Computed example of a mutant assay.
Amino acid sequence: MSRSPDNILLHLAQEQEEKVREIFAQLAQHGFPVQQQTPHITITFSPDMGQEAVEKAAQLLPAVIPAQFQRVGTVIFGTKRKQTVAWLLETSDELERAARQISAMNPDGRGERWTPHLTMGLRLPREIVPDYIRALDEIAANGLKQIDAVRAVLWKPRLQQLRMLAGQ
């Protein structure tokens, strides 16, 4: 049984998901930890996602999905031994507003805040992060400047339940 939280996620177009998985594979070939997560953009998460947040997502997301994101930088999340490397993303004002409203409905969320990102290295030992970022930059130098989110879902990992909220 998974201890991972419930998530309202945006999934990438299949071709782009495959490209991200190829980047993961190339990073693993360079000796970095294997990345097994499905590439996604998280809107909000909770140990048990409240119905109000799900209803707000089902109401708002169909009008803004599919959506385009621009890769604008690389960020590091975490202050302890394990850190996460992600691509920082920007998107339309409409999707930003929708994501912030959805996040605000999640009592376990961060209020009306949202930092759109695509995780490229999860739970990395702090000491390898600089080398990981260098390798990521080399491998993905000219690829995936634009990322397309084609569907929004509610993912409940402990139940292995996926519910489509918007898109294909």
Rank of each mutant, 00 (worst) to 15 (best):
K82H: 13
P62S: 05
T115H: 12
A166H: 09
A63L: 05
R163N: 03
V20E: 02
Q160I: 00
G143R: 09
I8H: 02
K19F: 00
S46C: 05
Q161H: 14
E18I: 11
Q68R: 14
Q101F: 07
K80T: 04
Q146D: 09
I8V: 10
F32R: 03
P157G: 08
A53V: 11
E94V: 01
M1P: 09
P33V: 13
E17I: 03
H30W: 12
A149Q: 06
R151V: 00
A140Q: 08
M1E: 06
Q70M: 10
P116E: 13
G31E: 04
T74Y: 06
L122M: 13
W155M: 04
V34N: 10
M49A: 10
W155P: 00
T84I: 14
D93V: 09
I147E: 03
E17S: 14
K56S: 05
R126D: 12
G109F: 05
A57L: 10
E127F: 12
L165I: 04
R151C: 11
E127P: 03
G111L: 13
Q35P: 01
L27N: 01
R110S: 12
A63M: 11
E112P: 07
V64G: 01
R113C: 02
A67P: 00
L9F: 10
I139L: 14
I65K: 00
G121E: 06
T115P: 00
L89Q: 02
L154I: 03
I65D: 03
G121T: 02
R158T: 00
V72M: 07
K56T: 08
I65W: 02
T84N: 06
G78Y: 07
T44Q: 08
W155D: 01
T91P: 03
V20S: 04
N106F: 11
R163H: 09
F77T: 04
D48G: 01
P157L: 08
I133H: 01
K19I: 06
E52K: 14
Q68W: 08
L159D: 08
N7E: 13
Q59P: 00
V72A: 05
H11K: 07
L61S: 05
L122R: 14
G31N: 03
Q51H: 04
E112L: 02
K145C: 08
L27Y: 02
R151E: 15
H40R: 14
Q37A: 11
Q14P: 12
D131T: 09
A67L: 01
A25D: 12
D131R: 15
T84Q: 02
E127K: 13
N7A: 12
R163Y: 03
T74D: 05
V34E: 13
Q168T: 03
L27D: 02
T115E: 10
I41C: 08
P5Y: 12
V150C: 09
W87V: 11
I76Q: 06
E52C: 04
T38Q: 14
D93T: 07
V34I: 10
E55V: 07
F69W: 13
Q68T: 10
L124G: 09
T79M: 11
H30M: 15
L162T: 11
T74L: 12
E112K: 11
L61K: 07
P130I: 14
E52D: 15
R163E: 15
Q29V: 00
